[in-house]
């Protein structure tokens, strides 16, 4: 019935000016990226010597750039396709792990009654601002050497350097504060009556999570997952640092950053590379965008 209302409301609401404005903004927003797309299919000389918009008066198309970037490796440099799969292997677990742990923690912070709950919550909130760069060295030491205090080994050297594990753990840690903060905002909006009713029915804390909280929070989880996916996929610093220089685990951004800078030229490969790295996040966004409708912060509407 609400869809009916909606469509009725729609016609009443539509304002041609608003629509036109939205279209104009959307166009403005797309032009820079569009320039990248056009540049990526132009030959090298053309990119260096004329603006991308001249493409329309003098179209020269070359898919060589993509061919070069995707499939041509060198003696020491695997082709971009491999980095693509590395990125995939980094990103999926680095989305699943932090979100799972964050939903758990958000549930605890929203619904368990214990002393210091608010303090913990706000500490976590504040942790968002800890700059990533300053955590690199201590975390790396932990992964590479383990942790010992006064000669007593607390965490042994696990020998995981150069694998995906440190990258996953690091992303999990860095993703947690914001995930907990946002999911907590969502979870605490679940009506108290629902929770009380479940309790009356004899559900324990675990059953309640499985049967009530988790199903209710799926849209929020899905929409946060999109953001976490984008952040991890586009991350450079964590992949670079915790990959410990191993090409077998380096994500696409690391390769892309390597292509920037050393040479003034090479734009034809760079533009193609940049575009390839953008394709997956876009697919993810389009595939999951309907979750935004009931999404992440839906709950924070009062009422």
């Amino acid at each position: 019935m609400s869809t009916l209302n909606r469509s009725r409301a729609k016609s009443a609401f539509s304002s041609p000016i608003a629509s036109a404005a939205a279209v104009v903004i959307a166009t403005l927003w797309t032009i820079p990226t569009f320039g990248l797309l056009i540049s990526s299919i132009r030959p090298e000389q053309a990119i260096n010597n004329s603006g991308w918009w001249t493409f329309f008066t003098n179209p020269e198309i070359s898919f060589e750039n993509y061919e070069k970037v995707l499939f041509q490796g060198t003696l020491i440099q695997p082709p971009m396709v491999q980095y693509f799969f590395n990125s995939l292997a980094i990103t999926l677990p680095a989305v699943v792990f932090p979100i799972t742990l964050a939903v758990f923690a958000a549930y605890a912070l929203a619904w368990f009654d214990f002393k210091g709950r608010d303090f913990i919550f706000f500490s976590i909130f504040a942790l968002q601002v800890v700059p990533l760069q300053l955590t690199l060295i201590p975390l790396l030491q932990l992964f590479a050497k383990g942790l010992s205090i006064n000669g007593i080994t607390i965490i042994p050297n696990l020998g995981i350097t150069g694998t995906y594990i440190p990258i996953w753990i690091a992303h999990t840690i860095f993703g947690l504060p914001l995930a907990i903060f946002l999911l907590h905002n969502f979870l605490r909006q679940i009506p108290r009556e629902l929770v009380e009713a479940a309790k009356v029915d004899g559900a324990g804390w675990f059953t309640m999570f499985r049967a009530l909280i988790f199903p209710l929070s799926i849209p929020a989880i899905a929409s946060f997952a999109i953001f976490q996916f984008l952040w991890v996929w586009n991350d450079l610093l964590v992949g670079l640092t915790f990959g410990a220089g191993s090409k077998e685990v380096a994500p696409m951004t690391v390769r892309l950053a390597e292509m920037v800078g050393t040479r003034g030229g090479g734009w034809e490969v760079l533009t193609a590379g940049a575009f390839v790295s953008t394709v997956v996040p876009l697919i993810v966004f389009f595939a999951l965008q309907r979750y935004f409708v009931r999404g992440l912060l839906a709950g924070s509407v009062k009422g």
Partner: peptide, 17 residues
């Protein structure tokens, strides 16, 4: 989707763009 698109682009890519 068009307005959201920049979110999907890495900073490295944004620099190039």
């Amino acid at each position: 989707s068009l307005i959201f698109m920049p979110m999907a682009i890495s900073f490295v890519g944004a620099g190039i763009i």
